[in-house]
Simulated scan of single mutants.
Amino acid sequence: MKRILPFLLIFYACSFSKKNADNIVYKVGQYFAPDKRVVLYDLTYNNGILKGETSSFLAYQALKDSLGRLDIDYIDSVQVLPIDTNKHAVVSLSVANLRSEGRHSSELVTQALCGTPLLVLKQEGGWLLVQTPDAYIAWVDEGGVTIKNADEMNAWERSEKLIFTNTTGYLFKDSTYSETVSDLVAGDILKLTKKGADFSHAKMPDGRAGVVLNDQVDLVSNWSKEREVNDAELKEVAFSMMGVPYLWGGTSVKGVDCSGFTKTIYFMNGYIIPRDASQQVNEGQLIDEDKNWENLQTGDLLFFGREATDQNPEKVVHVGMWIGDDRFIHSSGKVHISSVNPQDSLYDEYNVNRYLRTKRIIKSHTDGIKPLASMLEHR
């Protein structure tokens, strides 16, 4: 890829005159930041000033190189994010809501669980623009995270941790279990301070301490090594969320949208997959495009939406997980099971008619599929 980039940049640069520097800005953005959900690229060239901000140093450098090849003079007012590389954040609520803009009334676009490390791109008022381990960029209320410097972040990462494996539960103040410190949901990560016979002492990332029942947690170090994605494990997680209400932007057992549901299933089986259905469809191995249901295996992801036409591109809008016996489980209204078999009482004619393709995530090695252990590595 590195060898290809110079050639592409020269091609782009030679395709424009000095009068069209704004086109160079656009083309570089199209190449390096085609998905604005994961790469921030908001740059402009006006009256000899190159300004704006980007989270991609490669895009910034490529743009400068392209303008330089055309001898275009400019004043550089670009801000490359993150602004402060020493500032890190860890989610300190059971579930933190991440929004499209830095205010509570803006759209919920995703969620992050307790213990999730976030790359802090910038801060405005009481809000942080962050990037999640699945690369999603969104705003989070500062009250939902704990800010750490590099040394504090390293200490957090080196600490022994627990992962909450029950669907829901609590961090209790003490072993009387009469007062709670926080609610907990599947996937939350806590710092282990002392292991006991029936319960363990643990801390939230913000330092709040309490005890958690041992049969509801596991050591992250053991849990991540023991994850072997198979039919039974995938079904167990999926079925444990039956009836969970649909929530646009939700990625936790408190509420999930369709892709948040499939993301959660794989997260609790040790894998991070992209956030949205239109991103998940680009991962894994293509299994079917012709409704040959016999080729599908439990865990395969089925994608639905609008087929491409001469006038419109394909649009992926829904995803579910195959569970066998002509059935799939998905979040629409609530998490429930549907069937592709017209003879089944759960037949879902609407989604069958807009079916696009099936992709297999299990044992696939595409770029957007990462082991959960990578989430705990220093970023």
Rank of each mutant, 00 (worst) to 15 (best):
D231P: 07
D151G: 09
V39A: 05
N222L: 08
L192K: 15
D310P: 06
Q111T: 15
M268K: 12
K225A: 12
V120Y: 00
A62W: 01
K195S: 10
K19R: 13
K291S: 06
S182C: 03
D276F: 00
L113Y: 00
L93I: 08
W293L: 11
R327P: 02
L108Y: 01
S159K: 12
S224Q: 12
L162R: 06
H365I: 08
R357L: 07
D348C: 01
Y355R: 11
E233C: 04
E228V: 14
S240T: 06
L81A: 05
Q279Y: 04
G48M: 04
L129P: 07
E283R: 10
S55L: 02
S159I: 03
H88V: 03
P82R: 04
T168C: 06
D218I: 01
T298A: 11
V95A: 09
M1H: 12
T298Q: 04
E152S: 12
I329V: 10
S332A: 10
T132F: 01
K64Y: 00
T251A: 10
D257M: 05
Y350S: 10
S55A: 12
I323R: 09
N351F: 06
E228Q: 14
S106M: 03
L296K: 08
D326R: 06
D300E: 05
Y246H: 12
T132E: 09
E124K: 15
Y60R: 10
I83Q: 13
D35H: 12
F267H: 13
I147K: 05
T165G: 01
L8Y: 11
I369P: 06
I287P: 01
V237L: 07
F199Y: 15
I323D: 08
G324Q: 03
A13G: 08
N341L: 03
T298V: 15
H88L: 02
V120I: 04
R99V: 02
S55R: 06
C114G: 02
N166R: 14
N282G: 10
I4V: 14
P313T: 12
T358Q: 04
D188I: 02
M268N: 13
M153T: 04
V281L: 07
L356Y: 00
I272W: 00
V319Y: 08
W293M: 08
K254Q: 11
S332H: 05
E289C: 10
F57R: 15
A135H: 07
H88D: 02
T298M: 04
R99E: 03
A135P: 03
L219T: 08
D183Y: 07
D257C: 08
M1I: 07
N20Q: 14
Y177L: 15
L113F: 00
K359Y: 01
Y350C: 04
A238Q: 09
Y271P: 05
S178M: 10
H201F: 09
S92A: 15
I323E: 07
